[in-house]
Write a protein that binds this DNA or RNA. Structure first.
Lengths: 170, 170
DNA sequence: TTTCGACATGTCAAAACAGGAACGTCAGCA
DNA sequence: TGCTGACGTTCCTGTTTTGACATGTCGAAA
């Protein structure tokens, strides 16, 4: 249900086509809310039907640029301020931990070691991403930095936890 | 897709009915993989159809106790060792952060403050849960402790991050 | 001029997810 | 005896998500 708000949010920056949004997703929101191409086009149609966005420009190749309407902005603000965030937290990574006793201690340790490496890699990827962006003082950069910092801290936490956990398994 | 494995995992401990599994979910796996009642019964039927579990006992009130079959155990082990975990990480909490510039700084700070409180509450809830369980040295307890420790560390990380983030917003 | 990669959208079927209504049973207790 | 609360399953409706397939356009380079 949040995909709709993710799209509204991206469009609040500037008008964009489905294709544009797809690209921007990959480099920013994908970490918070993965979505596929088909989902996005479907959702854009629905949003347009409901009057939360509207086609602002038609370009070549059937390109349709959408812009946020007043109702769309109102809905976005409403979501940001009124709707209580709810933890979804589906994590197949954590889920496996509950059943590590089903495999051998060696296999379990190996799983946790891989998690350490995964966390390290993701941390590294985020660090590189941060380096590749020239941050300004604009509000958008502040948001981006905050979200990115979350990723960094999360991966650090997970790496240390996995190391600790591997040590718990005798 | 992991719900199936969550059920296999729970059944690897001991046979149980849908109702039992529902209860056990609430007190353990719900943090890693929330699922509703209808989903679970549907999945149990499918697992039985596929021969990964089987009805071991019929009890009163139409109670059907399922037990893991050899194929089920094999599938569980396969999932634990061969299938690469993939980060899903859908988080409407993090998603909102990208769009905090759409609302006023006061509102944004207020959002982050609420996150701090939420993290604190969840941390506290987990701590209480930990106290309420009498941990043994058995493998299951080890797993449970590891998963719980993850929750504690995660909430601590998130609380500190939210505090830091609130401070970033001028 | 052909070809190729990036641009750009749309449709479909299947699975997963959510929430609840509907139905019935059993044990204990007032 | 009748009530209540816990036990226990099934079905239904609707939305969300996934992944694949289908279709076509444009610009640039070979």
């Amino acid at each position: 249900m949040s995909l709709r708000h993710a799209l509204l949010g991206l469009l609040s920056e500037r008008p964009a086509s489905g294709y544009d949004l797809l690209k921007r997703f990959e480099t920013s929101l994908a970490n918070a809310w993965p979505a596929t191409q088909s989902q996005m086009y479907t959702e854009l149609s629905k949003l347009a039907d409901n009057g939360l966005i509207s086609v602002s420009t038609q370009g070549p190749r059937g390109r349709k640029e959408y812009a946020l309407t007043d109702e769309g902005l109102a809905e976005l603000r409403h979501w940001l301020t009124e709707i209580k965030p709810q933890r979804h937290t589906r994590s197949d990574i954590l889920l496996r931990v509950f059943f590590l006793n089903v495999i051998t201690p060696d296999q379990a340790r190996s799983y946790l070691t891989e998690l350490m490496e995964l966390s390290e890699q993701e941390h590294e990827a985020l660090r590189r991403l941060a380096d590749s962006i020239d941050w300004g003082d604009d509000p958008l950069s502040v948001n981006g930095k905050i979200a990115l910092e979350y990723g960094l801290r999360f991966n650090t936490m997970r790496r240390k936890w996995a190391a600790w956990a591997a040590d718990q398994i005798r």
